[in-house]
Design a protein around this nucleic acid. Structure first.
Lengths: 151, 151, 151, 151
DNA sequence: TTTT
DNA sequence: TTTT
């Protein structure tokens, strides 16, 4: 039966993407994304609850990720849950849940010690205006999964 | 920073919910939900791709699940991704990803092959109208997480 | 700036789709979909709140809608909000909000006044298994917008 | 029947919120939010397509909006579609579609040219760090609709 | 490991 | 009316 398997995340990259170029022009990028939920406990103290998500991007999106995404950036992600299963050395069944990214959009965010736009260092401007130096900023606001870069 | 961690699923229960009544009126229900994606491969053959999700419901929702949800039923689920981490007997770090359900709605659907229908209520037909025999059908179309049954 | 404009609905068709075949192989289907929210008011009485949505589907999806969707069926819909603007006869600016459907999936459900499966009329069983008699049930669980029928 | 009526938006405020304080402690805020979709047409030219959404927030959320949201800011919004109907002076049935906001989160973004910064706090820069001067930054990442300010 |  |  046709089902729905949809994930929507807004969070920050815990590190630069890890990109692997495979044979046959295939590219895969792995990203660790933190989503933080903030609430007040019964004593009225604010509590932060961070969840880490393993994202997987392929081909065109992996190439964009490689070029533009940096540790600390804030990302909107849409994707689906995907479980990889295998046997470990002891013969135990193991599985790992990943988010297969179908589309993403860079949001604001900034690295630690960020500054205002006018004060910004030549290097490291990525967070406030990620693709500003690029002739055409990347836009991937459609659930496109084709291999072409969108610009 | 405030983030977003949202999961939306439509799928079928692989089994009746497993419900545990804990001390202090706490109740937890675990549900295995299959979402199936169907597509045609390059040869034009239809391929089904099923992903299994471990759902976790608490208290009021767990009680509703215990009372109404049955193997084979189709469910709309909204929740968030939650990772439990622990050390196994060998001292290895292990983790398990679950969907913490925030709201759900029973849809149509039916058990596999319809063959199990006779193993349930004779005139049950729960799948087509799950809560029809109930004086007040359960409705949980708000992201309510309070402990009260909604009816 | 790249934004997000996403609508997710589960509801029932208020009528059969209205389909128009335009020049150049273009097809558009308009659907009226009711989403009902049910809650208890302060007096403890259940209240139903129904919202009607104007859906618009194009080409391949419009053709599938024309062939399979019937009044009363339950639908999962994913799309985006789209406002058409024009001037009326008095020269006033008018606008109409529609949901441009990007993907949809037929769910269980049944038409108003529906009955249990065993009581159902030979004709019109569509609601419980919409596409069952079709050699290949339609599945459109990807945000595909191409013009080809998916089966 | 229990349905789903969900809207997810990321966009920018076209103006400061319009806030009305009603009798009985009720507060309503109206916000105009632009979501922009960017794509390349057949000639390879980038095309921006902007959709304007009328948001409605009540009580606690309206108060937060009044205090923190400013023209130009980028917002993540979750809500539902709601249609108001009435008769105009000519006795014609009219309707207006609004997004009833259930939760929202401020994202990056910034006002036009940053020129408005001086009209706010001297060291305002609200867009990059909206609530920085506040002892407790507002966080509304739960679909909370209660009237209390979340901080 | 991120962010506020 | 926003934003890039």
């Amino acid at each position: 039966m046709a089902g729905v398997n949809k994930v929507i995340l807004i969070g920050n990259l815990g590190a630069d993407p890890e990109v692997k170029h495979l044979e046959g022009d295939k590219v895969v990028a792995n990203i660790s994304l933190a989503t933080t939920e903030s609430y007040k406990d019964k004593s009225g103290n604010r509590v932060d609850n961070t969840e880490w998500h393993d994202l997987e991007l392929w081909d065109g999106q992996a190439r964009i990720a490689e070029q533009y995404l940096k540790k600390g950036m804030q990302l909107y992600v849409e994707g689906k849950i995907k479980t990889d299963t295998w046997q470990d050395e002891q013969g135990n069944n193991r599985k790992k849940v990943r988010i297969r990214v179908l589309s993403f959009t860079m949001l604001g965010g900034r690295p630690e010690g960020g500054s205002t736009a006018s004060e910004q260092q030549p290097s490291g401007n990525y967070a406030n205006k990620p693709a500003m130096n690029s002739p055409n900023p990347p836009v991937m606001e459609s659930a496109s999964t084709d291999d072409d870069l969108p610009f």
